[in-house]
Design a protein around this nucleic acid. Structure first.
Length: 402
DNA sequence: TCTGGGGTCCTAGGACCC
DNA sequence: TCTGGGGTCCTAGGACCC
């Protein structure tokens, strides 16, 4: 989907069309912020620079989506909102309306599924579709079906999308970037040399900042240069699996299937604080946040019908270093108190001298609620058994040190 | 002006078992 | 007294993606 979050907001507020709009997670909604400062909703769309106490409104949020007009100002996804405000003071900032985003996400996906049922979910705004056996899927090399899907989505949602058609997912993903927004790109195997090899290696789905940097240091910038490398050299540099994979994708080869359904592996909740907190000095505040995260994870599990056996925590220190700890329990659970108790054990094993900016709670090793082994508490793993022995009652349980 | 939240997958070491 | 492999599970960190 093209600039998905922003486009959804433009449907509601068409008067913002053509303006630099950024969507991002401030900690108060624009309504709250402007009600507080101006006392009326009519002033909803004041530019970010005119926000009184700007920092309070955009907080530590980042941009999830910027309209194409905003991108002219070198503003992009994942950029801090404070930085974006500096780069483009006239930008309109809107909070993410997740319910609305999810509604449109379901709508565009169900629209596609009606036409082409072999669809793989790739997050909130992206899917892979197998055109192979869809009636008309081969016409004009796939362009006719792509047009049909674009039209259907626009009619149902008023939103545009960009579609790449290719012999595999790797090339289709790259093709989808060729003609944004509202474009269609067809890439054939024969286009490898002419259209894929000139691209930077970072355009490959799976080569991120680190691998990109390492390749650059090796003098490899383009996908063509990557393809020209000796396979053994790549294996030596990046390991057996990654090196071989890089060589394959550089040659446009990808046999990964379109996966229609998959089970979740983990569910988590995390939050970045408004200000960095200290385990001792801000003990009460941290304890409340920690409990709330456990309750949210538990309620997510219950709502979706899963139970977890591994519970973990995540800390981000003020210097941005991350620490994680997890513990596998003797039995599966979706109970907030149990999760909190196990997560509390994890908390005891992590350094807490430094200030924290983020706390997270994770549930892993998931099983569908009805499918957890019975009597599993009678055959705990060795580690879990020891943890169980160390269990204290929740009431007397000191989460953070004094 | 510091940098969100929710995920997946991989690696590597150690415990433990056969 | 010295010394095998193979396999699974658990844990911590990290890369990457939307």
């Amino acid at each position: 989907m093209d600039a998905f979050f922003a486009s959804v907001e433009l449907l509601r507020y068409p008067q913002l069309k053509g303006l630099p709009v950024v969507i991002g997670g401030g900690r108060r909604t624009v309504d709250e912020a402007l009600m507080a400062s101006h006392g009326e909703r009519a002033l909803r769309f004041i530019p970010v620079a005119e926000f009184p106490l700007l920092k309070d409104y955009v907080g530590r949020g980042v941009i999830t989506t910027a309209t194409y007009a905003a991108r002219q100002f070198d503003i992009g996804s994942a950029m801090g909102l404070m930085k974006a405000a500096k780069l483009c003071p006239q930008a309109i900032v809107l909070p993410v309306d997740f319910d609305e985003i999810r509604r449109f996400s379901r709508l565009f996906k169900s629209t596609i599924a009606e036409v082409a049922p072999l669809m793989q979910d790739r997050g909130i705004d992206e899917v892979y579709i197998d055109f192979t056996d869809v009636p008309g899927g081969q016409r004009e090399g796939g362009r006719a079906l792509a047009r049909l899907i674009q039209r259907a989505i626009f009619e149902k949602t008023g939103l545009t999308c960009s579609i790449g058609v290719a012999p595999n997912k790797l090339l289709a993903k790259m093709a989808s970037e060729f003609d944004k927004p509202n474009g269609i790109s067809i890439v054939h195997e024969a286009d490898l040399q002419g259209r894929i090899w000139p691209l930077n290696v970072r355009k490959i789905n799976g080569i991120g900042p680190k691998a990109g940097e390492k390749l650059a240091a090796l003098g490899i910038q383009t996908i063509g240069e990557l393809a020209a490398q000796d396979r053994q050299l790549l294996v030596k540099q990046f390991g057996k699996a990654s090196g071989a994979w890089m060589h394959e994708v550089a040659w446009g080869r990808d046999d990964s299937p379109v996966v229609l359904q998959s089970e979740p592996v983990s569910m988590s909740r995390e939050t970045t604080f408004e200000r960095d907190l200290h385990a001792v000095r801000d003990k009460a505040e941290l304890g409340a946040i920690f409990t709330r995260l456990c309750e949210q994870v538990a309620s997510d599990l219950q709502r979706k019908g899963y139970v977890a056996r591994t519970i973990g925590i995540k800390l981000r220190y003020d210097d941005f270093r991350i620490a994680t700890r997890d513990q596998t329990a003797p039995a599966h659970t979706d109970d907030a108190r149990t999760i909190r108790q196990i997560a509390g054990q994890c908390l005891k094993r992590v350094p807490l001298e430094q200030r924290l900016r983020l706390l997270g709670v994770r549930a892993g090793a998931l099983v569908k609620s009805g499918e957890a082994p019975v009597h599993e508490q009678n055959r705990p793993s060795a580690q879990a058994g020891r943890a169980q022995a160390a269990t204290e009652t929740l009431a007397s349980y000191p989460l953070f040190p004094s």
